[in-house]
Amino acid sequence: MSWRALRAQTLEEIRMTLEQGERLLVTFVIPILGLVLFSSVPIISTGTAHRVDFFAPSVLGLAVISTAMVNLSISTGFERGWGVLKRLGATPLGSSTLLVAKVLAVLAVELVQVVVLGAIAAGLGWHPHAGAGLAVGAELLGTVAFSGIGFLLAGTLRAEVTLALANGLYVVMLGISGIMFPIAKLGGFAAVARLLPSAALTDVLHPSLGGGAVPVEGWVVLAAWAVAAPIVAAAAFRFD
């Protein structure tokens, strides 16, 4: 593996994410709007003292879903459709290094998201609890899980189908994963929803950043997705 090629490709992947409007919409605009809107306007009751204490961890989870799953799968899916993945496979960069560059770019964009969203949340009066270390671990585990799901979609389906499915999953996860409202409000359905990687991620993020006991179940579900999704993706991924 050439480090020079990996570095150049990673920078190019970051640049392509940050310069295209439709990709910025899902990675920055929607999480920021969600954070500001829901934290400021009492639309949904959150059960926390300050609304932002609930929505800040929520959008930090949403940031991972939007970048590692939605943005990664759609861009990779279209690049596969355009023959770019195939073509780069015949260069010294190589197809596996290309996928590594994509994951590194996801991590870099997430870092920017965390800084931006964290700053906005702080501006809205958010004081994170000291357990930020756990939150970082959850974000990394979530990145692995959602990148695996993203690659699985992109590497097996037509680009247009990946686009539709990734956006559909995004909306479903946004709705029932403890992002827009506490998952307990789902009643009996909450146990099923908690099997989603998105719900597991927010299950860990909310207590980590809000002060409270982090449920073991959340870690287990998140870790299971982080192991299974990349393995299945690696087995099923097609470059052309």
Binding site: E19, W82, G83, V84, R87, A90, T91, G94
Partner: peptide
């Protein structure tokens, strides 16, 4: 891996980033 640095490939179609 040994071969790719020495070959140049032009696919029948595609292979470039539209953006």
């Amino acid at each position: 891996h040994a071969l790719v640095p020495s070959i140049g490939v032009m696919l029948q179609q595609g292979g470039t980033y539209p953006v």
